[in-house]
Design a protein around this nucleic acid. Structure first.
Lengths: 260, 260
DNA sequence: CAGTGGTCTAGACCACTGG
DNA sequence: CAGTGGTCTAGACCACTGC
């Protein structure tokens, strides 16, 4: 079983020294096939995927090969392995860490945040993408965009003011009411209601001075600096699906990061 | 070769339901042994470790088992694999990314920073640890501590002001002159001159207002907020070896982070 | 108990590096 | 070319879960 099942790496041109050899190990191809199943919705967040033996049979490779493929997907947080039970599609819902992408922690106290956050939706409106939003979300200027503004409070103190921009098409039907009614992480709602799963994100962080509106909403004095956190979140295929600009009050909290 | 070479997991008491089963896979034990070699200095940063086959023979396990051990150490950035050449101890010197732990990027421009940073050592003095420093570095209050203050500039603009605290014992002989003379990352100097390798770090980030001294050193106006980045860096064994408090000017730069 | 993921082995072959 | 890491297989057994 050394032969390639999938017609890859066969692009052997007359001059192999030019252009890429394009060698791709079998397990990478399997990884790609599993990824397709995830994107296509064959297996939904929270559900289990077939056992390693089943997948090995389906793709006609050994168990060790699909194992290595799954290993990588699991280390990318796309799958979750549970010994004795199976392998499951990762989800933002029913996750021990309520906010996987929120790295703001209280200065004192446990990794567990001081109780669940209070969330208040301030605004939720549609408009047409300007150049900046369009670029960030890979849309054309003028395409429909949804903007959400909300405040998160910890222990009663307003701490995070954030604006979100979402592409209008995938999120058709999202309203302030639906956001307010939903209990649980926003990304979990995106999964269950709109079939959009956030997989990865990048953040750019700066220190800024608040404007008057921000001071009022966050109940801070005008000289209190804010942490500006601009996040782009991606679904499968590195498709950007959300732009988010958050302003964090860091009087009693800090952004926590681990470097390896 | 299923039997355990190392006397582990044999602690089978009369009541196995009580206390931990303490089962540890073979490859974890191998990982521990390799780690010992790294800590003890048997293999130094930049050097190569024995080949997988050699290690397999030495530890009396299969190649696949040491392979899995090395895989984990490599994903922890302790080792670097190079196909066809061997496996090497990771080092902060001779690394493509000059500053592995510095996540400040220019707003515009490549991931490559705008040329190498200009570094200026402002101060380097010894004193005795107060309670806070002692706690952070796992020292007793009163133990010798080294404090360094320096400024990093990018393209001529002072951008980072940072204070470092180091335990006095391992860094005996460190002077401002030696720091100034050294070209390359500070952590590389720590490796080659003091045998201290930084493996992991944690950062706590806040937005703060600068004081007068910081304004003068960073050449900024008093209303310019700063990013406060407090880092604890660890060697092997999760031993804290450095406390660092940096203040970043984020007018033209941002702290870049990736979330998975 | 059967089914799942997790470990370990032994051996074959491939891709890359350097002399 | 020999030596290294990288891939793939086949099969055995272990640890955990749930019925």
């Amino acid at each position: 079983m050394t032969s390639q099942i999938f017609s890859v790496e066969t692009a052997e041109s007359s001059d192999p020294s030019l252009s890429a050899p394009a060698f791709s190990p079998l397990y990478q191809q399997i990884k790609g096939l599993i990824l397709q199943g995830l994107q296509s919705g064959e297996w939904k967040p929270g559900e289990g995927i077939p056992s390693e033996m089943e997948l090995a049979a389906r793709y006609r490779v050994s168990q060790g090969t699909v194992r290595k493929a799954i290993d990588e997907l699991a280390s990318n947080n796309l799958l979750v392995r549970r010994q004795g039970k199976g392998t499951f599609v990762a989800t933002h819902a029913e996750q021990q860490v309520q906010y996987r992408f929120l790295k703001l922690m209280p200065d004192m106290g446990q990794p567990k945040r001081d109780g669940p956050a209070q969330r208040k939706i301030i605004d939720c409106k549609r408009f047409r993408a300007n150049a900046e939003i369009g670029r960030a979300l890979a849309l054309r200027t003028g395409d429909a965009v949804l903007q959400v503004r909300r405040i998160l409070s910890f222990g009663g103190a307003p701490t995070i003011l954030e604006d979100l921009w979402l592409p209008g098409a995938p999120f058709k039907g999202l309203t302030a009411e639906r956001l307010s009614d939903y209990h649980g992480p926003m990304y979990a709602l995106f999964e269950t209601e709109f079939g959009v799963r956030m997989v990865r994100a990048e953040e750019k962080i700066k220190a800024v001075v608040p404007d008057d509106a921000q001071c009022k909403l966050l109940e801070i004095k005008s000289h209190t600096p804010l942490l500006s956190v601009e996040r782009t979140a991606f679904t499968y295929n590195d498709t950007p699906m959300e732009l988010r600009r958050g302003f964090y009050v860091t009087a009693d909290h800090h952004y926590h990061n681990v470097l390896n």
